[in-house]
Design a protein around this nucleic acid. Structure first.
Lengths: 212, 212, 212, 212
DNA sequence: TATGAATGAGTGTTCATTCAT
DNA sequence: TATGAATGAACACTCATTCAT
């Protein structure tokens, strides 16, 4: 066993370094564009060690998803359904800021998730089964705020397509947007938050109020 | 041995068959996951012929983008800014239905575009230069409806992140959503259209009214 | 297509050169010890071409077996059951000489067959299914000379274990024997032929006579 | 963590467990097809321990051969030259039964020996030097029964190719034969013993009588 | 235009072996 | 003695691309 008392200077255990390197490389190149050699090089380990810990490139992807997507959704749930978002805009903005900070730190994961989710089935089925289970858990929070059963499904659809998706897209696209349109980050984020509140929060408020 | 005397009706010219096959394969597997062999097989042509018409796999991707993304945005612009969407909901729904039909027919293109756009730069820069130019054209329509210069950028941000992105996401994700949550298409689409109108159209209406 | 009119100087079509090289390398190193790189080098082709013609190392082994084992058994059958072997020793010796010449030209194939047949099942099952079918055909000749059903199985057992196997073993082991005991080929072969006639031919003659 | 206080009965010492596991794995897959990982797993030890006791995979093979082949030949010699085999068939059958029982218990060793002996030289030379020495010792028994020097070599050839080889082949092939032709073990063995006696014993009897 | 054959440079994976403890 | 971690060198196989016809 190496590193009995983990040296502070960023020398994490090899297994984690591999996971982290893979996360970055997958995010940059996509799963199929990623090279195991590059992951090894960035993790500072021998390529064979990757196969010692994770049995294949695909299993490595799964390992990345397993823990992290769950963690993201766990954070997203309460945050998105904090009822203070409907009370005053200052509160809504504060919550959005926290949420975006949190998600931006996981942007690599979101990139991978989104890229993989867009491959046409059946190539894609394996990964979406995993995702569906997680969304189900996220939606239990949505469901609890909906009284009329006929609105349940619409609430889910809305939370996903006008909530999660723009949020994820912002996190994934904001850098390139800044580059393409020459906007600074603060301004772009402010515009996005404002737009998101006006669009998604307004719409969900209507829906949830009807269901009180 | 292939069709010496190519029947003029139904059997497309080889060059187009290649483009079509590539579009499908890229959409299923992503650019890096796609195999030139499979494109050739689906197009019913010899692999070398692909290199005769398009000089590389990458150029083939470019060829797919060139005409089509432009065409999609050309349609999207007027449609999205048809002012009748603010008048009555029936009109808004009708316009949305037409738009979704149109986009669903181009879903393969959207998949490829979205997947590629999510790779982290700088891998990604080449494709986004193309996109930025196109968005610029699309936004000229947005800009024309905005009087106050300080709202211009926000209008663009809104149209992209709460407009285009959910729309594209619906087109790309609706099949897997149906499979994952057991919803039928009509119901899912109705829920999405309603959600989109409540969120995006409501928000843009506010913004555009302020700028009248 | 290369080599329209096959140049006389040993430049066979690539596919055959691969097969021949594989035969030699498998015989020298065994299937698992053989390296595809070496096969390519000896065949004078690019490694990828091997996979163009044969889809895997295993399929290449199968391809080698398919044609050749059949051919060997086709020759062995009539030869072994030529009734002249019982008439006078000169005839028996002549037949044995021809047979050994024939088999020695196929010694690589025999080596591979024997090596693979000795792996313990179930690793081994795939190859023996092939072999069993071929032996069945060989044994139809044996069966035809046996009148009493209760002797049928013994005839097969005898033909295999005291006939085929010593024959194959001689072909496969004679070189190393010469080296180990310093015998010259003519002498060794004469001794073997004499021994084989005394043992196997004598025993089968008894059995077949009883069944007249 | 493994057996700190090794129970003296039943749990063999690690070194022996490794040797036994290697014997089985080599017999199943051949030397080149065998994996050190699998040997370690079957022996229930850490892979590195194999290198502690035996310094390489090849040395492990040598270790297996060293004691055992010698032991087999030591048993074979007297057994095969027990003169009672010529007296009455009942005695011959009894001796054969004992011999086959003995060899079947060493069938893994025989498989490995035979497989390795069939690789074409020079890959193969190392192992045959070992074998030649052992055969030499075995043949000293043969030689002692031969008076005429010109028959000495033929006796050796006969003992090997029509004696040892069918015997070994039976041990190694009988399982797959049963499977392929649906014979039960007792019947197959009886047929083989009978055939072997008729072929090999008959032939050697002739030879040895001439040399009395 | 079209193809079957051929290839260089990888690509994910395996494996015998070694190291630190 | 014994182990979990680590590695260099291969390994079978793939793939975009080119060539000869």
């Amino acid at each position: 066993m190496v590193n009995h008392e983990a040296p502070e200077g960023g020398v994490a255990a090899a297994k984690e370094r591999i996971r982290d390197a893979a996360l970055r490389v997958f995010a940059e190149r996509g799963f199929d564009g990623a090279r195991v050699d590059e992951i090894a090089k960035r993790a500072g380990v021998n390529k064979a060690l990757i196969y010692y810990y994770y049995e294949s490139k695909e299993k490595l992807l799964d390992a990345i998803f397993q823990g992290s997507v769950e963690e993201v959704l766990a954070e997203l749930g309460p945050e998105l359904h904090d009822t203070r978002i409907f009370e005053d805009e200052a509160a809504a903005v504060a919550i959005m800021e926290r949420l975006l900070d949190f998600l931006e730190q996981r942007q690599d994961l979101l990139r991978i998730f989104l890229m993989e989710s867009m491959k046409r089935s059946p190539v894609n089925d394996r990964i979406f089964i995993l995702i569906a289970a997680l969304l189900d858990r996220l939606f239990s929070l949505v469901d609890s705020q909906i009284a009329r059963p006929e609105d349940m499904e619409r609430a889910r659809v809305m939370e996903f397509f006008t909530g999660l998706i723009p949020l994820f897209s912002y996190v994934v696209h904001h850098e390139i947007w800044m580059k393409a349109f020459g906007m600074d980050e603060a301004r772009l984020r402010a515009d996005f938050v404002r737009s998101f509140i006006d669009a998604h929060f307004t719409a969900t408020e209507m829906l949830y109020k009807t269901n009180k």
